[in-house]
Structure formats: structure tokens, C-alpha cells
Design a binder for these strands. Sequence first.
DNA 1: GCCGTTTTCGGCCCGACTGTTTTCAGTCG
Length: 573
Amino acid sequence: MPVHNSEIATIFDHVADLLEIEDANRFRVRAYRNAADTIRDLGRSLEDMLEEGADLSDLPDIGEDLADKIAKIVRTGQLPLLEEISDDVPEAIVKATRIPGIGPKRARALFKALDLSSVDDLRDAAEEGDIAEIEGFGEKTQTRIRKELKEGVIEDERLRLDVAEDFAAPLMEWIRNIEGVSKAEIAGSYRRRKETVGDLDILVQGEDGSAIIDCFTEYDEVEDIASKGKTRSTVTLRSGLQVDLRVIPEPSWGAALYYFTGSKSHNIAGRRRAQDRELKLNEYGLFDGETRIAGATEKEVYDGIDLPWIHPVLRESRGEIEAAENGELPELVESEDIKGDLHAHTTASDGKNSLKEMAQVAQDKGYEYLAITDHSKSQTQAGGLSEDAFHRQVDEIAELNDEFHGFRLLASCEVDILEDGRLDFPDKLLERLDLVVASVHSKLDLSEDKQTERLIRTMDNPLVSIIGHPTGRQIGERKAFALDMEQVLAAAKDRGCVLELNANPIRLDLKDVHCRLAAETGVDIAISTDAHSTGGLDNMRYGIDQARRGWLAAENIVNTRSWGNLSKMLRRT
DNA sequence: GCCGTTTTCGGCCCGACTGTTTTCAGTCG
């Protein structure tokens, strides 16, 4: 049974959540979280490593105990420890900790004091005013719980794209190897590269539908088979991910791919165009009366409704059909356009690899440059550097650069934005750097006006090159902070400041629509990984997908330029 | 639970804020 790194990491994170609620030793809790981080960033399959006889306790933050536990998970798919503590802690308490301001301690106290057992119980208690009556809780907490539950923050079941990929890749390999399968593709929001997916829509082409579906449902990770026929099957994987498989005849392949890729509103627009031409478009093809006139390829289908092929990332009914009609579809940025990464951490702050190791991997990727952006001093929890330590790092980078050919490390810093928009480091230090990334890490709950003013104030400083993860959101974890994006973009345009598209699949911050708005406003974007390890540099592709969903071309992205050009662009003084 | 070592156990990140209470525990980044 294949066990993925992300599953193991999720198990460890879950153990940490439960231990925290049980008030376990906080360092033990952190050990599980650290191990989960290491596993997620690994880039190699733990299962493969075990097969090769590797000693997992050689990995950072993995000792003998956790190495054993990993082996156990790989062997059995389960961790007995997790089963044990899950029995003691209701899942609803874990969910309650996703409410801002409610941590493990208060969640437990809440459930105990009111004898609750579900999220619905919690909602009722908040509505009836019971929570404010508990010692240590008050009106504000109660109002907040009520509001967060109303917004459904803790019920969102969509999977992040990177997590879905982790399950999709081996499943697709399995499907492509089924006898008689000549083609297989994932459609739906996965193909559109949306930041989260609800389920996987898989299309296959092949001869014997029943046989293919029989084989599909025998996949190791299938836990539940909801339906199973000659052309279609729906299953749920062990991870909870729902998968729909459809067997498509060759003449309908393109039409089905078009139909199941969506989005729904893009499809509706396509069908309307067909109607206007007295044709009918469905998942089987484009029909003139009873005669199929197109359907084998997507291009054929688009041709039939007088449009050029439209890239899946654009199919959101955001003007792509009009643009296609007028020959104005964007020339989307490609991975090959990227010449470097402008946001990365090292062991100096909270990264896992050294300057040298990060530089080596960046060079292996063919980059011309990599900006080292360790945290500034107020990020104490992330090992933020003192001013002295920063000066030393700049010197160290200069020395290292003497050894490189056709590549350079850029001396930079992810400097904290203080509450009033000023920076955590003096200009005198920042002047020494090749560029400056400024980010908000504190005071996330300011009013929209204050937060907007804060960022604009930051951009007033001409030493600031790039605003890092501009809205602070973390998908499924934390909402974006309140911000008037149009004002921020206008100010960035005025000041020649660049906004980051953080490529970490947890952040993808800016959102696609904001990327597009930026381009329309004339604000340039930096696609940066915010890598905390060499493996983290691979996240660039998620940023590129997101940029493409925002209609961005290479010319909108600053790190498609060589350092010579880029350094001139970033200089605002 | 990991790590580093003074190889057997102590230290592990910590300052600021919030809502509550009136001196601080819990949460957050």
C-alpha cells in the first residue's frame, strides 16, 4: 500500500493537535510538528527511502522514535498512538481550535464546561449566550465564535492543490498502467490549477470500460465504492478524496475533456455560442442535428464554436471568451521564463539549509540569481537576525559570490513591517542590500483602513523593493487580512513598488484575481517561493500556475528578467 | 520527542497582545 509523505506529515500534525489539547509537554508537541515540516519538504518518498534501507533518524528532527513510527505508518497505514488519543479527544474540539483566539486550552475548557460534543453544540451554545457565562470567557469571545461559525471557516473540506497532487500522481500512474487504457487525464478544477480542489474528475480512453473500472476500483487506496458501472465509477480514497472516473469513447474525448474541465460558467457560455450557431454542445460532442461535427479534441470543439483553444487556467468566465474572440488572449508566463527566485530563507533564521546549499540547488535549476531573505529581528519565533548578524550575512554572501560563475546570491532581507508601516531595520542597513522584501507578520487584525495605510506607508520607503505575501492569507488556515487592494495597487504603481505572488501552495498570495488587477493597474509581480529549504524552491510552479490564472505574461513578472535589468527596475532612489 | 554531548539528561523561542480579571493564562506569529 503506497503511503505518501503528506499522509505521514498529516498524521504527525494531527498527533500534535491532539497532544496539545491533552496538555502534553509542549516540546513533545513541537517535535511532532517539526517532523511533519521536515517530511513535507523532503522531496523524496519516505517509503522509497525505507525500501532502500535508509536510516530515517539521520533526517533532521526525526529521532529513533519517530523513525519507528514512520516505518509503522508505511507498513500499516496507521499509527496506534493516534488511534489511542483520538478516542480521548472529540474531533469537534480539534475543529474548534481553528477559530482565531481559541487554542487547545480554551477549546477543551469550553467543551468541558458546557458538556459539548459537536460543532453544532458549540454553535447552539454561542447563539444562546452560554459561552459568555463561563469563567474566563466573555462577550467578545462569544461574538467571535458565533461569527466564525457562521462564516463556515472550520467546515471547509476542499483539498489544497499540492495535497491533491500528492494523491493524484500515483493514482494516475495506476490508471495509465491498466490494460486497455490508451489515454488518461485529470479534468475539473485540478486541470484549471485552482488553489483547492473538491474532488478529482478523471477521464480515460480505452476499449473495455467494465474491465478498466474493475481495475480502477481495485486501487490500494480505495476505501469506499459509491458507484461502479460500464462507463463511470465514483470512489472515495482513504484520504477522504472523492474520485470520479469516466471512460470516454475516442470521438468524444475532446468534448468530454472540455465539459468536465469546466468551469461551469465557461461551459454555459460555450453551449450558448453553439446554440447561436444552431448547434448543440454536450460532453459527447458538438452536434448539427444528429450529426457529430466535432468532439475528438478540444481544439475541434473550440473551432466549431469559432474560437481559438483557450487554456484551462483561463476558463473561469472572466472575459476569456471575449478575449479569444478578439484575438487578445494573454501569452501566459512559462516556467522557462523564470530567471531566479526573490524570497528564500536559510538556517540563519528559520530555514533548513545553508546559504551554500540553497545556492547550489538554485544553480541546478538554471537560475541566474537567488535572493536570501532571512527574517529581521522582531520575528523572534522565526530566528530573526540582529542587525549585526545581518551585516555578517551580507559579507558572507559577497564572499560566496566570488566563487560562482553566471550566478549570484542576492543579499536581501524579509524585513518586518511594524504596526505603523515603518520597518524593523534602519535604512542604513537596508541600503547595503541588493533588494528588500517587506512583509506583515503581526497585527493582522487591523481595520481595513489602517492595514491599507500601513502598507502604503511601507511603500513610501524607496528602499522597499517588494511587498511579501501581501494579504497574509493561508489557504484553509487563515483569512486574508482586511485590505483595500485597489488602493494598495494604485500606491504600488505610483511608487514603482513590486508585489509578491508567494508561490507556497499554502499561501498563493496574491490571489489570481489580484494578480490580474495588478497587471491591469500596471504593477509588476515577483513570483517567489518563500522557500525554507532547498525543496521549497520547487514550489515555483504553483506560483506560475496562479500567475497564469491571473492572466499574467512574462513581461508582468520581474523575475523573468536578468539581474542586470531587474536591479535597475528595483532601484527607486 | 529531538538534540548534543560534559554519553545521560537538560534545554528546547520568546515577546507581545488579548480578554479577562485586577494579575495573568492563553494565543499568536
